[in-house]
């Protein structure tokens, strides 16, 4: 155990000293402010067009309209419940003088994960993941690493733990940086705004029976939790590729092709039966809590988690078997 700790410390130090994690953070620190600024200018332009004062009146009007419609006896109970929730949400904004159409730091941070989870975050993760084993081969240091009195599986496990640490850090830093930077532009308010979650599509129809109201910060954490699961799966599969190939560039190439190919597949051929079993189709786990339907039909959160779990376990098995048995020839 002490041994594993020392090994993991070695590996984390190597990633730090190699400056790979710096690159990841640098990318985040350049891209997030760019997106924030883009969003900010769009909103300013919109504001100039629409005018600042009339959103309260509009919102008040909406609430009255909706309350009116809820009186109708023809309305099904399901529908009524949703409208009730929407009214509550609108009242919240009105009471706190927040324009619901304007972005807050919480919304921006959530959107960043929602849109980044299928491609942007995986790309960040593979920077470290594809390098962590293959570089030992390409630099020849594997010969020293594997001739020390330590079992091979322990060395690989320490590398995997290191990867988990940096992947988790990447997700956390993304959240903190998004919130901090966007908060400067949009304000930090709105974190306790009531949000809906639990929309379902069952049998092709909209099912609102599971709809719940959550404070926004909880929804945000759910998004980041699910996004974390997706990135861990991508990290594990990149790790496997890193074990299988001998160079970082080759590993990056393979993972880029897989990720981009997978994204295209989901968009072009979502009802292709095999698409359901490919991990890239399930990376947008966040869609389940945000109420936007997943691009592939007839899937549920447990099903997606199962598929991702199988890929993760498969990737680990291949990695460990290959690494512990393979001849180190070059």
């Amino acid at each position: 155990m002490r041994n594993l700790l020392a090994l993991t410390r070695n590996e984390t130090l190597k990633v730090l000293r190699k400056r790979r994690f710096f690159v990841v953070i640098l990318i985040l620190l350049i891209l997030i402010p760019t997106f924030v600024y883009g969003q900010y200018t769009t909103e300013q332009r919109l504001l100039a067009k629409v005018g600042t004062t009339d959103w309260r009146a509009q919102l008040q009007q909406q609430i009255t309209d909706q309350e009116h419609r809820m009186q109708s006896p023809a309305l099904p109970d399901e529908q009524k419940k949703i409208m009730q929730l929407q009214v509550e949400q609108q009242k919240y904004y009105l009471d706190r003088n927040i324009n619901p159409k304007a972005t807050g730091a919480t919304t921006f941070t959530r959107f960043f994960m929602q849109y980044g989870v299928s491609l942007f975050l995986p790309l960040l993760v593979i920077v470290i993941a594809t390098d962590i084993v293959s570089s030992e081969h390409s630099e020849g240091t594997i010969k020293l690493l594997l001739t020390r009195p330590v079992k091979r599986w322990k060395i690989l496990l320490s590398k995997y733990l290191t990867l988990l640490i940096y992947t988790t850090l990447t997700v956390m830093i993304t959240m903190v940086a998004c919130y901090a930077i966007s908060g400067l532009f949009f304000g930090f308010q709105g974190w306790d705004a009531p949000m809906f979650t639990g929309f379902q599509i069952s049998g092709g129809t909209f099912d609102a029976s599971q709809v719940k109201v959550l404070p926004h910060w909880q929804l945000l954490l759910m998004n980041y939790g699910l996004g974390w699961i997706s990135t861990i799966v991508v990290a594990t599969l990149s790790f496997m590729v890193s074990v299988l190939v001998r160079g970082t560039a080759a590993g990056m190439g393979v993972m880029l092709a897989v990720l981009i190919g997978g994204n295209i597949l989901v968009q072009l051929a979502a009802d292709f039966p095999i698409a359901k079993y490919i991990f890239t189709s399930h990376l947008r786990l966040t869609d389940y809590v945000n109420g936007t339907p997943l691009p592939i039909p007839d899937v549920t959160l447990p099903f997606s988690l199962c598929i991702l779990g199988l890929w993760l376990v498969g990737g680990l098995i291949v990695s460990f078997i290959t690494f512990t048995r393979r001849d180190v020839l070059a």
């Binding site: 190597k14 000293r17 190699k18 630099e139 020849g140 020293l144 020390r148 009195p149």
Partner: peptide
């Protein structure tokens, strides 16, 4: 073959790395 060590670390850091593996 060649003494391949971690080029991005100092000599001392390399030795520390392998010392940690020995325990």
């Amino acid at each position: 073959e060649n003494p391949e060590l971690y080029k991005y670390m100092t000599g001392w850091q390399n030795l520390e790395h392998f010392a940690a593996m020995l325990g």
